[in-house]
């Protein structure tokens, strides 16, 4: 399974462990986030450090998941932007909306 989840200090960390995060993994990604929400998680970190590229379908999956987390009164932090992924978030003006950190540790600290 290329999408891994773990829980640290009540924060669900979702790692998308593929170089190209595309339509191929988007549905699995949404299901895993939904599953974590159903199991009571509200705070999330999406770790994109492995992703050299994300396509628009996968970006939409992140946006959909973000909306669900917010509706659930939770918070989302995103970490591990590589240049092409950062540029995708900047192009769509989403970088101004998402809370972005360099690494998991910083993101975890920010929940405190």
């Amino acid at each position: 399974m290329p999408i891994l989840s773990e829980n640290i200090n009540n924060v669900s960390i979702i790692l998308v462990d593929v170089k190209r995060a595309t339509v191929v993994v988007a549905e699995d990604f949404k299901s895993i986030v939904q599953n974590e929400l159903s199991n009571g998680s509200s705070n999330f970190i999406f770790d994109l450090k492995t992703n050299e590229f994300i396509d628009s379908t996968f970006l939409a999956a992140i946006v959909i998941s973000y909306k669900k987390i917010i509706e659930n009164n939770g918070q989302l932090k995103i970490v591990g932007f590589r240049p092409a992924v950062r540029s995708m978030f900047e192009l769509t003006n989403l970088s101004k909306i998402f809370d972005v950190y360099d690494n998991e540790q910083e993101a975890l600290m920010s929940f405190n």
Binding site: V63, K67, T92, N93, L94, K96, I97
Partner: peptide, 8 residues
């Protein structure tokens, strides 16, 4: 442009 995705 400055605007975000439609529907967001």
């Amino acid at each position: 442009s400055e605007g975000t995705l439609l529907g967001f």
